[in-house]
């Protein structure tokens, strides 16, 4: 499966909206706190998979997120 599909994606967000999503998620992460942030993100992914209604697209998005996953600097390891 190709990760960066060169074909135009029909329904991607314009940058300013992506930025608003970024901000909303940052605030939600802080609200959840370190103990529950993984659960929050996992729930969010499930909700998005369900609402997206497209299993192949979900699997592709998951592969994008997994690929090149680096040691998180937040956890102090880097």
């Amino acid at each position: 499966m190709k990760l960066d599909d060169p074909r135009p994606q029909p329904s991607t967000l314009p940058f300013d909206e992506l930025e608003r999503a970024y901000e909303a998620l940052a605030l939600a992460l802080d609200a959840a706190g370190p103990g529950r942030e993984s659960l929050l993100l996992t729930r969010l992914a499930l909700v998005l998979a369900h609402r997206g209604g497209d299993l192949a697209a979900f699997e592709q998005a998951l592969a994008v997120a997994l690929d090149g996953l680096v040691e998180g600097s937040v956890d102090g390891s880097a």
Partner: peptide, 25 residues
């Protein structure tokens, strides 16, 4: 300024290595 913002930034930066869509951040 906080862990949430830091996680978001690291997510955007690490995706940007291979993907255009977060580079604008």
């Amino acid at each position: 300024p906080s862990r949430g913002w830091r996680l978001m930034r690291d997510a955007a930066l690490s995706l940007a290595v291979k993907h255009e869509f977060t580079r604008e951040f």
